[in-house]
Design a protein around this nucleic acid. Structure first.
Length: 687
DNA sequence: CTGACTCGTGTTTTT
DNA sequence: CACGAGTCAG
């Protein structure tokens, strides 16, 4: 292709492999990009090149793993385009026209656009994980499955089984045998439940997360729709391809059957989402799926120092199956990573905070430091201590703001108004009202459905005594919300909040914090133009939790990052602390069932370690106190993660976190007073 | 039928 | 411990 001179100059900044990827033509392309090898930079340059080559931005589809990643990528594209055109404003809007987002978000958008071809109403609502569980729960009751004597799997387990089956496209028997053997005896009942689940979603006009992919795939193979989709895009780029599942691969195959214009990027060594049915085979077999494809491998690491890379290379070298990659860096100097043995969790916490503050003193801002862990609750003790010491932090992963009961309640009102057939939201909202329980809620919703979602019929219902005046108020709120679709969204949220606030006090503890969250939500809603968009975005791209523990991080310029390893994917920081690196946590003892799971845990540790640019600490408490049943000082001893092999440990400096104990005596100074003084003071309390 | 209560069990990662 | 399932008094 003929690049303009200016573009050539910009591409000079890339290394040869990166440049080859950026300027590659339309034949199928796989970029195997090791950790920190400038994957985002490369992809951004490729998108810029495509636009520069005259491909209309709205005909480019960029699929990423998170919305943040898409935004970051397009920001970089903007930068490059602006350089090219000498700050012309047109380029800024150009990248905004690119279709960028997660598979689920893009799927939603395309299904609203083309869903009619499948008979799907464009105003469908989307269930998040816990909504889906609630629906399963309702159906389980209706089918009386739990009452059959033997204990039936919990709603969450049922949904996991269902989800695995559809995402891996595997028959139920196989999923049960391989992943849920203890539920095998319930196979017939589960089949019945899943059929009901699929039918009910159809009746209610709702889709769950998995449906967004499944329906999109149907769209992509459905003759007329597929044509429209294929005609819509010239180029499709997929990031984090190692974490896609077979349904996602089928979607791509449908949109781009011959792979012309298709680019996928990923690193098999960082595949960590098999619990969501992602399969590393997608990236490994890409050349077979798309004959004539080009494979480019990026191996020069621009992120970490060589001592850190030597350690991470050694950790991944022990993996059972991997693409050979030998990451290297020109940053040869730097400190060896530390393995820090702490006596117990408290000492680990103290050690961390001391190090973090020390680094900050030395000019590394808190935002450039991250504490990473396997499970969300691993940071609890640290969070408490950070709050006590007034160190601001922001936590990614774990329970999100929108998953808290009160936020879901408030959104429930809006969702019911948007789609009165949505009985999941309906139940949720109705049982909040005094005097209304499961049974009455169900009958009210049936009545509502019989009157085509006209909330007015509820005026004729005899309200339960306990409901009092609030029933009339509730009905008028809902009719209002139904009719005033044009009212400003914040006003709608405000009305719901006024009605709902008193109910918070009746149903939950910690009322103040929850009411503050609701205020926050009203504020957030101001950023959205219409209600449907607001509801959908909140389930597909929920904001990470507001941290009220350590003050509002938005007000603080600088804050420390706490993150699960899963949520840290693709990110990097100057100083990284991987905590609770004991066997049983990494690998989690929930995930040591089969060799594949263990291998994934190894990659998980690899992902964590490769986030570090300059300084890497791996810490673990050696003594764990048992939680729960046995109180007192019962404890056990932990071993370092099995993935820190002898070979890997050669690249670590092992230290023991000793703390200056307060009992270290300063023998040089004379006593200010005697023990006799102390005793007389004690006596004075009752004298 | 609702809502307050007790009892027992299981416990990761996320769109 | 925290949540879900099951029990029982209004």
């Amino acid at each position: 292709m003929a690049a303009t001179p200016a573009l050539d100059a910009i591409l000079e900044r890339l290394n040869p492999e990166q440049r080859a990827a950026a300027v590659h033509g339309q034949s199928p392309l796989l970029i195997v990009a090791g950790a920190g090898t400038g994957k985002t930079t490369t992809l951004a340059h490729r998108v810029a090149c495509l636009i520069d080559r005259g491909i209309p931005p709205e005909r480019i589809l960029l699929l990423t793993f998170t919305r943040r990643a898409a935004a970051e990528m397009l920001r970089r594209v903007d930068g490059i385009l602006r350089e090219l055109s000498g700050a012309a404003t047109s380029s800024v809007t150009a990248s905004r026209r690119v279709w960028g987002g997660t598979f689920h978000a893009i799927g939603t958008r395309l299904l609203r656009q083309h869903g009619k071809l499948l008979g799907l109403p464009p105003e469908f609502t989307v269930l998040d994980r816990s909504d889906s569980e609630d629906l399963i729960h309702v159906l389980r009751d209706e089918l009386k499955l739990a009452a059959s004597g033997t204990r039936f799997p919990l709603k969450g387990t049922c949904l996991s089984i269902y989800s695995r089956s559809v995402n891996a496209q595997q028959p139920l028997t196989r999923v049960l045998d391989e992943s849920f053997p203890w539920c095998a005896e319930h196979q017939p009942a589960l089949k019945q439940l899943f059929n009901a689940y699929v039918d009910r979603k159809e009746q209610l006009g709702i889709l769950d997360y998995d449906d967004l992919l499944l329906f999109w795939r149907e769209l992509a193979v459905h003759a007329r729709a597929a044509e429209a989709l294929r005609a819509q895009f010239d180029c499709v780029l997929v990031d984090e391809y190692q974490d896609t599942n077979v349904v996602q691969a089928a979607i791509l195959k449908g949109i781009v059957p011959d792979g012309v214009g298709l680019t996928v990027v990923g690193d098999d060594a960082q595949s960590i989402y098999s619990f969501r049915a992602a399969t590393v085979r997608n990236i490994l077999d890409f050349p077979q799926h798309y004959p004539g494809s080009t494979v480019l491998t990026l191996q020069q690491n621009y992120r970490s120092t060589m001592p850190i890379l030597q350690a991470t290379n050694a950790v991944i070298a022990a993996a059972a199956e991997r693409h050979c990659k030998d990451l290297w860096s020109s940053r040869t100097d730097g400190d060896s990573p530390s393995l820090v043995l702490c006596m117990d969790e408290d000492e680990q916490t103290d050690y961390l905070i001391d190090r973090i503050l020390e680094h900050r003193e030395n000019g590394v801002p808190l935002k450039q430091q991250a504490v990473l862990f396997r499970a969300s609750h691993h940071s609890m003790a640290l969070e408490v201590e950070l709050a006590r010491r007034n160190v601001p932090f922001h936590k990614y992963g774990g329970l999100k703001f929108v998953e808290t009961a009160h936020v879901k309640d408030l959104l429930g009102f809006l969702r019911l108004a948007e789609n009165p057939r949505d009985v999941v939201s309906g139940q949720r909202v109705l049982v909040l009202l005094p005097g209304i329980g499961q049974v009455r809620a169900r009958s009210l919703l049936t009545t509502l459905a019989e009157h085509r979602g006209d909330f007015g019929v509820w005026n004729d219902v005899k309200p339960p005594k306990a409901a009092g005046a609030s029933w009339k108020e509730f009905v008028s709120l809902m009719t209002g919300l139904r009719n005033v679709r044009r009212t400003k969204l914040t006003d709608q949220v405000h009305r719901v909040r006024s009605f709902y606030a008193p109910l918070v006090e009746q149903h939950y503890d910690n009322v103040r914090a929850r009411l503050k969250d609701l205020e926050q939500l009203e504020l957030v809603s101001g950023r959205f133009s219409d209600r449907m968009q607001f509801i959908t975005e909140m389930t597909l791209d929920p904001p990470s939790s507001t941290q009220d523990l350590a003050g509002d991080p938005l007000l603080d310029e600088d804050y420390l990052i706490l993150s699960t390893i899963h949520s840290a994917k693709g990110l990097e920081w100057n100083s990284v602390y991987v905590i609770h690196a004991a066997d049983g946590n990494i690998p989690s003892d929930m995930a040591t069932g089969n060799p594949d799971e263990i291998e994934e845990e190894r990659r998980l540790l690899y992902v964590a370690l490769t986030r570090a640019k300059d300084r890497l600490y791996v810490t673990m408490p050696q003594r764990y106190y048992f939680q729960g049943r046995f109180r007192g000082d019962a404890h056990g001893y932990a071993q370092p993660s099995r993935f820190l092999t002898r070979d890997a440990l050669q690249h670590f400096r092992t230290e023991v976190a000793f703390f200056e104990r307060p009992d270290e005596v300063d023998s040089t100074s004379a006593p200010h007073f005697t023990t006799g003084d102390v005793r007389s003071r004690i006596k004075s309390t009752w004298e």
